[in-house]
Amino acid sequence: DFLIGGQLYHTIPYEVEVINTAQKGDEINDIMKNKEVKLDVKDYWELYKWYILGVLILLALIFIIYYLVRYAKRRKNSPMVMTNQTLKELEILKKKKFIENGDYRSFYVELIDISRNFITKQYKIPADVLLTDDLIDVMKTNNTISPENEKIVEDIFLRGDLVKFAKTFPDQPTMQTDFNDIKTFVKRSSKDLEDEQLRTGV
């Protein structure tokens, strides 16, 4: 529609029918050949930059996560962390007042369980599965634990076995001394590991 001089005019309508004359098997040729365009580095960068950046970001995230997990695991298993954790467990044991109440069996069962778990994780000695005599032999052969600490563990573990089988009945001073000795052993453990590292050159 056209508006001319205030009057509306209409164009003549036409209908166009388009017929595809191509037959099956006809060879179809382009009107003009495809033009080859040479791309330089900048062009390729513009085409693929978001893919490249995405891959780099993904790799960076994987790298960061890997080292965070590795650092957290190493820190969790570090000698000082294990020492502090065991000292907290010993304080919890102390608050149960087994010593004051004369409950020597419960006291030695928990004290030795805490000590075995500590030796297993701190010194990488399977104290949680070894019998006392076998553990003592392994400690003496391993040489990771200092002789002073070995003596503490040996005396208290042997006494604990006697208590569990009702062959001995320790008094409160003995129980308190054993508690303090294990606490001292735990605190000195990091020194054992430092000496071992110097000895092995690790």
Rank of each mutant, 00 (worst) to 15 (best):
185 F>T: 00
158 L>D: 11
178 D>C: 04
118 F>E: 09
136 I>S: 08
188 R>N: 13
153 V>I: 12
180 N>K: 14
135 L>Q: 03
135 L>G: 02
166 A>N: 11
129 V>C: 09
181 D>S: 10
145 I>M: 01
155 D>F: 00
169 F>N: 08
123 Y>D: 07
110 E>C: 03
162 L>K: 11
170 P>T: 06
160 G>F: 02
126 P>Q: 15
147 P>W: 00
177 T>Q: 14
114 I>P: 04
119 I>K: 02
97 K>Y: 03
119 I>S: 07
170 P>I: 05
167 K>G: 11
96 K>R: 10
173 P>S: 13
104 Y>W: 13
99 I>W: 00
158 L>H: 09
181 D>T: 03
103 D>I: 03
183 K>S: 13
101 N>S: 05
129 V>M: 11
177 T>C: 13
156 I>Q: 01
104 Y>N: 06
118 F>H: 10
115 S>W: 04
125 I>H: 12
107 F>M: 06
116 R>T: 08
131 L>R: 10
93 L>C: 09
187 K>Y: 13
137 D>K: 11
102 G>P: 05
144 T>D: 12
103 D>M: 10
106 S>C: 13
161 D>K: 14
106 S>G: 15
141 T>S: 03
187 K>M: 15
170 P>A: 09
171 D>Q: 13
111 L>S: 05
129 V>D: 09
122 Q>M: 15
183 K>N: 14
100 E>R: 05
115 S>D: 08
116 R>D: 06
127 A>S: 10
134 D>C: 04
109 V>F: 09
154 E>H: 01
161 D>P: 12
124 K>Y: 13
173 P>K: 12
130 L>Q: 03
171 D>G: 10
